[in-house]
Amino acid sequence: MITSKLKEALICFRAGRVTLRYPFEPSVPPEGFRGQPQLDITKCLGCGACSMACPTRCIEVTNEAEQRRMEYCFDRCSYCGECAEACPEGGITMSSEFELATDSVTDLRTVAYLDLVRCESCGEVVGTAREIDKLAQELATKMNVAADSMPWLRWCARCKRESSLATAQVLQPAEAHL
């Protein structure tokens, strides 16, 4: 009985130290470790793709009068990385940060406000100013048109349908095919 306990102690001493002195020294996570997502809010368009992708519903997108409110509640985050995968702007990256202990849960939450654009005709929300500016520039380059030649970027889907024939005539005069 005693000998077996001694043998056990011997084996443990022989193995040396296997744990870190953490938290007295830093712990470096291994390659590929998924920690807390990092936001670069300057890149955020407010499109909400991250919110749609998030399985734990950490990210809430709501429209207020003039602004879109993006709330990131990383206290519920499961570190799956879907939001970073979805973000079209690379505004979310997965860090290796995992030391998230805090006295207040609000420390894990971030709220951002982005300017909204409402339909020029009916006031329905179209998108954020950043989305529309980005599209105007990108489409102008890719399609070789003037950035201000696309008034519909500021119209909601319903109003676009209602003026769809007029829009079409602007784009393609009748004579072209008559």
Binding site: L45, A49, M52, A86, L135, L153, K160, S164, A168
Partner: peptide, 22 residues
């Protein structure tokens, strides 16, 4: 990825996100 940029880009209102916004 349900970003909705195509919805804004379409000149004719022919694209919309489905009922769940997905």
């Amino acid at each position: 990825i349900s970003c909705g940029l195509c919805v804004i880009a379409c000149p004719f209102g022919a694209i919309e996100l489905d009922a769940g916004g997905k």
